[in-house]
Write a protein that binds this DNA or RNA. Structure first.
Lengths: 188, 188
DNA sequence: TGACCGATTTGACATTTGTCAAAAAATCAG
DNA sequence: CTGATTTTTTGACAAATGTCAAATCGGTCA
């Protein structure tokens, strides 16, 4: 649980009295490769922390599979849409490598946030980071070419190419597999 | 100040003792049409509440003017990028009609959030709404055609066409003025 | 090894949107 | 009301990406 604690404390420090209450509602999962952590239509109002491994969050939109996020070691991740209960949210989570991770239910998080100011603050900071990421991603989709988005991804997550099939990366970048393939053949 | 209080309480109730402290840090502005509320490179870490009127938040990105948001009556708005101190943030705010609005500095908001749990919670909820909006907008940019985005805007803000020049709307929708014009000539 | 299967690449063509230039329409000042 | 200015529309063409189909690559397994 050390990595989780570290990651949390880095966002916002937690006094002892609420740290224990908080940690007790996280659930640990140790799963193999290609494991479905959450099937589509499952209860998806969870926040995850990936201790080690790779996981993909995705959903279907008119028959097509959309990769919403690819998480790698030591990242928090969630389906924003479903964590804050909105639209489709038929999300699924799937590991791409053997993985160890933690999850917490939205309801538990909110209950503790009401009870403890420091947890509320932690939550606020997490939502804020998420918002900043969301804005960055929107900016990237709106103003950058597929080429530039690909290069940005390589920068942000070197090694992702070796660990994740191109079809998922394409969908995460918001382009077709064919376009991604062409981008790659130009650059290298 | 009634409309502001109502809007705040609707997000999250504020007990009396912190409501007064909170309200005291908001600043009121009554400005004419075409007023520059915030010039580019000004201090932009503010959250606004538009009591009445129309305002546009925009910034420059390689010489081009990008309309980040168009706010109308009774909306909160902010430059997410600059409120949470990130990248360019050379934002400007400009009224398109005579307007009455309130502003609060990020530093004041954060200070009070630290002091009062209910204000922290309010902030968390505001950031959450912002995140949800951001996601919706990203989704819209990524998966919808310019046509669909335009129709969605008409739905969400009927009357916006009469109150805001098309060039601003185009930039807000992420298309050129010419494309918007063509979309409009097809539909009506 | 060799046939097979999924992943990736390539090709031909269509679609959407952007760019630049000019025309038309609307708005404004005097 | 009229000419000047600004806003919006239209046209011709280019660029980026999508779509569909086929070819190729890589690795697996019997």
């Amino acid at each position: 649980m050390d990595l989780l604690i570290q990651a949390l404390e880095k966002i916002s420090p937690l006094p002892d009295e609420c740290r224990d209450a908080f940690l007790s509602v996280w659930q640990y999962h140790d799963v193999p490769k290609d494991h479905t952590l959450l099937r589509e239509n499952g209860i998806g109002d969870q926040l995850f922390f990936l201790e080690k491994g790779v996981a993909r969050i995705y959903y279907h939109k008119n028959d097509k599979e959309i990769t919403e996020w690819i998480a790698m070691d030591r990242q928090f991740f969630l389906s924003i849409t479903s964590f804050f209960e909105r639209t489709p949210s038929h999300l699924a989570i799937h590991t791409l490598e053997p993985s160890q991770l933690y999850s917490i239910r939205q309801a538990d998080f909110l209950r503790l946030a009401d009870q403890f100011h420091p947890i509320e603050k932690l939550l606020r900071k997490m939502v804020t980071s998420s918002l900043i990421l969301s804005q960055q991603r929107m900016d990237s989709i709106q103003f950058e070419s597929a080429q530039q988005r690909y290069e940005r991804l390589l920068d942000a997550s070197p090694g992702i190419i070796q660990r994740v099939p191109l079809s998922y990366i394409a969908s995460f970048l918001g382009v077709t597999l064919e376009t991604l393939s062409r981008i790659r053949s130009h650059r290298h």
